[in-house]
Simulated assay, not measured.
Amino acid sequence: MELVFNLLLIAGGIVLLYFGGEALVKNAVVLARTWGISSMVVGLTVVAFGTSSPELAASLAAALTGSPDIAIGNVVGSNILNILLILGVTALLAPIQAQAQFIKREVPIMIGASLLLFVFMYTGEQVGRWEGLASVVLLGLYIWFLYRSSADENPAVLGEFDQEYGQPVQTGWRTYAGLVLGLVLLGVGARLLTIGAVELARAFGVPELVIGLTIVALGTSLPEVAASITAALRREPDIALGNIVGSNVFNILGILGLTALVQPVGLPWESIQRDMWTMLAASVLLWPFLATGYRLGRREGGVFLGLYVAYVAFLINSASQNGAG
């Protein structure tokens, strides 16, 4: 009975996170367009960061309730899932070939953000408030870089983002109410998901880190799944890629940075290093496809998806062996 209750908590938390993220993104896009921000910058910042809002809510909730392993596992697991699973499925549905030059430039930034975690690991046992502040400052510079780069972009790419995010909008009390509702749903959903995940981990003897890397990461990444698959079906590959790359950068610099500012996050180096290397390898694997202009086709999507299945199987196997030991 307790198992069913914990699973219901996790499922309910994921549902609330999904709808909370959707409400936040939808209304944040309306506000950003009202303020005169270009549709491309909206797509690469407001939407990419907005779809990462469930990860932020879940990581904050986990850190504040004394489960730092779930917080760090959520960030690392979401980044692995975004590239291998979401881009893999997206490429299977519709081959991806990026036209946007700046997305190709962003991938090294994503790799650099991943490497920053290794720096934090080697310089201390936690991401403290100073590291969190440095991460948030770097995120601000990244947003400024996007804003400056978008002015020199390919007209076809600009049109793609205008079609998706450039519609005339009107703000009113419903927009602000939607923002508040989204934040409330995110907060409640994150709390339910964290409680359910921690109790499930304890019941089965599975490390909280593994729960964070799998169940929590998948649950909080649902907005990225929806956004990327929708963009792929509409034949808008740059939006799908921009969402994933932007989300991965925000997951490390924004989520981990903001979480550490509120509550320093311990880094379980011995147990997380394997997953950090996997995250870095997945990021590096994506780079050749964008740097050379070679498309991410169905064959490559299948490889990405296969790698993710193998990674999760390895996690489950390792957890079962540790439990047996």
Rank of each mutant, 00 (worst) to 15 (best):
I255S: 04
I70Q: 11
E55S: 02
Y176Q: 05
L305P: 06
L138C: 05
L200I: 12
G77D: 11
A11L: 15
F289K: 08
A203P: 07
I272K: 05
R235A: 13
A32L: 02
L315W: 04
Q99P: 00
V245W: 03
G196P: 03
G77Q: 02
L133N: 12
I70C: 09
F161Q: 00
V284S: 02
S271I: 02
S150K: 07
F19P: 10
T214N: 03
V169S: 08
L261A: 14
E125S: 14
L261E: 12
S53Q: 05
L280K: 09
L24F: 15
I109K: 10
L3F: 15
R235F: 12
Q101R: 15
A91S: 15
P155N: 13
R299D: 11
L93F: 14
T171L: 09
A231R: 08
L285E: 01
N243M: 01
L261G: 06
G293Y: 03
A94E: 11
A58S: 14
I109V: 15
L64P: 06
G128D: 12
D152K: 14
P207G: 01
I86E: 01
N243K: 11
G172H: 05
R298Y: 04
K26I: 08
W269M: 14
G246S: 12
P168Y: 05
V198C: 04
V210R: 02
G128R: 03
G257S: 07
S320C: 00
G159N: 09
G128Q: 04
T51P: 01
Y308D: 05
D152L: 14
Q170K: 13
I143H: 02
S59Y: 13
G66E: 12
L85Q: 06
